[in-house]
């Protein structure tokens, strides 16, 4: 069998992207859910085969360089998108995941030098890509929930059901991301939770979202405070994501400076 290389990426990527774009377009138009899923699965199969073949020709899982990690992003983003779509039928979600996936594919195609740029050893872990991807989805779902909350606060339109649900989904992604992070840290550094600034903010953010879902059960009629709290949660999430890079107290303290 002929060995596959980076030079073949464009072909696989093109076919997968066409399928994913078709799926996104169909789902935006409210087309048949089965067709949407089949198209998305088709794209995943094609892209997945590329990763499989790369794995085969490299002789190790493609996890060692930036470029290889981006392959996993491009694969898992549409996968998580598809799972979210098939469970909750949010029509925008496939477009979002396809868009992100396209960005990573384009980086891989347009900047071939990153194929050789090795990751620092601690990042060469099977936990790394899932950890990042799950967090990306958490940002997306909670982001949409925040927008809807703002909308409801300003326009007084009831979006509560969708907000609650997106927040639940977002919280489940946050939980998984946080715990994958812990498992990975244990493997790489020998400690699952070191309370470095990123982890501290992740814990705070997680607690804030936890408060939201418990508050919604406890005081279902107290909507306004809940929505305002949700805005605060999102601020906390931003802090966790990029804010700490500018926080004086966190300078030079974090093991997460690569992110």
């Amino acid at each position: 069998m002929q060995m596959i290389s980076w030079n073949d990426l464009w072909l696989f990527a093109l076919i997968s992207l066409l399928l994913w774009v078709a799926a996104s377009w169909l789902s935006l138009r409210g087309g048949s859910r089965k067709a949407v899923c089949l198209l998305a699965i088709g794209g995943l199969t094609v892209f997945g085969s590329y990763i499989g073949l790369m794995w085969h020709s490299l002789g190790h899982p493609p996890l060692r360089t930036m470029g290889e990690t981006r392959l996993w992003y491009s694969f898992f983003l549409p996968l998580v998108g598809l799972i979210t779509y098939s469970r909750w039928h949010y029509r925008w979600v496939l477009s979002f995941s396809t868009m992100l996936s396209t960005v990573f594919i384009c980086i891989n195609l347009l900047k071939p030098e990153i194929h050789d740029k090795a990751l620092m050893p601690a990042l060469q872990s099977p936990w790394f890509a899932p950890h990042v991807i799950v967090y990306m989805f958490a940002y997306a779902t909670t982001g949409v929930a925040t927008l809807l909350a703002l909308w409801q606060l300003c326009r007084k339109q009831d979006q509560l059901a969708a907000i609650d649900n997106l927040t639940r989904v977002g919280l489940s992604f946050l939980t998984v991301g946080m715990l994958f992070g812990a498992l990975w840290a244990k493997e790489a550094w020998g400690n699952y939770w070191t309370w470095d600034p990123k982890e501290t903010w992740a814990a705070a953010t997680w607690l804030c979202y936890l408060i939201y879902i418990h508050w919604r059960r406890c005081r279902p009629a107290a909507v306004r405070p809940a929505l305002l709290w949700l805005l605060l949660c999102f601020v906390c999430l931003q802090m966790c994501w990029w804010g700490i890079n500018y926080l004086p107290s966190a300078q030079g303290m974090s093991a997460h400076t690569y992110s």
């Binding site: 039928h89 949010y90 949409v144 969708a162 609650d164 649900n165 919604r216």
Partner: peptide, 9 residues
Amino acid sequence: NVSSPVLAH
């Protein structure tokens, strides 16, 4: 609806 209300309550 684009954000189809999926019911949490």
